[in-house]
Simulated assay, not measured.
Amino acid sequence: MRRCPAARLTALLLAGTVLVSSFPASATIIDDRYKPYRAVSDVTGDLRIEGSPALRKYVLLWSEALMATYKGVRAASRFDGDAPAAAALTDGDIDIAAMSREMNSAEEGRFRDAHGYAPTEVRVGVDVLTVFVNKDNPLDCLPMSKLRDAFSAPSVTWGDLGATGNWAAKPVLRLGYRPGSSEAGFFAAKVMDGQSFASDMKTFDKSSEVVDRIGKDEGAIGYAPVGYRTGREKSLRLSTDDGKCILANQMNAYRRDFPITRFLYMYVDKAPDTPLSPPVREFFTYAFSLDGQKDAALAGYYPLPYVYSGQEIERLGLKRLD
């Protein structure tokens, strides 16, 4: 994964004046070096996107903005998962594969065998899963090893996780997502170290349902995208091997300090020295505009750092808006 040293990224991120936008109940910062999108002429055609449910909001917001701007653009999308999207891009059935992970070597190899060149990878945003507990919970920080125990051990009390007094004997109510969901897979990859989720974990389809239940049950613990805070719960800081407690916030996500952080990706079939089709070109031009990054915040994710967006624009053969 391409990375920028933390100190340099911090300086680059804070180099310009920033614009404050809003998650459902928290604030995010959008670098105002991003410029508003400007419509161009003669953009028509179909735009076919398939991918992970994790990028559903991105895809819908950006494609709907494109269709509202260009009446001759028809966008269609489906969200059956990462692997089907990679296969569909290789087969030429779609224009964009929206993925919650990087293509693996087998997927990229099949694309190379079919086309003679690699798919073009584009980072479009930063996703963070926050560990939430009820606002009355006395814990503030949890080691990653205890977080794994909280979701895998057969029976866990809050005393096992470090709480004392009246909280020590309280059972832990584990909340998560249905098996096969993008959120469950992301959390398992970052936290579970190969262990299975406990059989008594209650699962939900929507992040709002997870967070709502945490706010109502003082013994609950769960995880959800950072944008779903409501004020009836609180985020736990997480500590890794060095013992430092890290809060889930925008800067820690950009530095990759918070352990449950990932980039979100889109892949396109771009032959060398061949321009993108007008609908695909304007989809990404909008995505890397101020308007597109506001949509990213509305979708519950952190915008892509401005310095990274320049790399993606160059990779796509596009020009930065001015």
Rank of each mutant, 00 (worst) to 15 (best):
L264V: 04
S208Y: 14
E209M: 07
D269A: 07
D205I: 15
G243V: 01
A54T: 04
I94M: 07
T285E: 09
V40F: 02
S239T: 09
L139M: 12
G92N: 11
D193F: 00
A163G: 09
L13S: 09
D31P: 05
D136N: 14
S239M: 03
F288P: 02
K202S: 01
K35G: 02
F204Y: 13
A271K: 08
D291L: 10
G222Y: 10
L66N: 00
Y306Q: 10
R2G: 08
K202C: 03
G51R: 00
T203F: 02
Y58P: 01
S277R: 09
L60C: 09
L89P: 03
D113C: 11
G194F: 04
L147T: 06
K35H: 11
G194V: 01
D291R: 05
Y306M: 06
K146Y: 02
D95W: 05
A198N: 03
W167D: 10
E108W: 07
K294E: 15
I49D: 03
P278I: 09
S239N: 04
R33V: 04
G116K: 14
R148N: 07
F186H: 13
D42T: 05
F23C: 06
N249Y: 13
L139K: 10
C245Q: 09
N166F: 14
R256E: 06
V191M: 06
R2L: 09
I96G: 03
M1T: 01
K35N: 10
F186Q: 09
F151L: 02
E312I: 06
D212N: 14
L89E: 02
A296V: 14
D257R: 15
K35F: 12
S152K: 02
L236Q: 03
K202Y: 02
R123F: 01
S105V: 01
L276A: 04
L247N: 10
G300D: 12
P84F: 04
V210I: 12
A87Y: 08
Q250W: 05
D200F: 01
F288V: 05
N134V: 15
T203V: 02
S63R: 02
V133M: 04
Y223E: 00
P143I: 05
R229Q: 15
M99G: 00
Q311P: 05
F151P: 00
S289H: 10
A153K: 01
E107G: 07
G185E: 11
A253H: 05
P119M: 05
A87C: 09
N104F: 00
D160T: 00
E121Y: 05
S181P: 08
L304T: 07
E50A: 13
D31G: 06
R112W: 06
V268L: 08
E183N: 14
C141W: 09
D149W: 01
R148L: 04
L89Y: 03
F186Y: 15
P278F: 03
R33E: 15
T130P: 12
F132E: 07
M67G: 03
V307Q: 11
N166S: 14
I246K: 02
T44Q: 00
V124K: 04
D242Y: 08
A198Y: 05
L318V: 00
R148F: 00
A75C: 07
S145A: 03
R320L: 12
M103N: 01
Q195C: 01
Q311C: 12
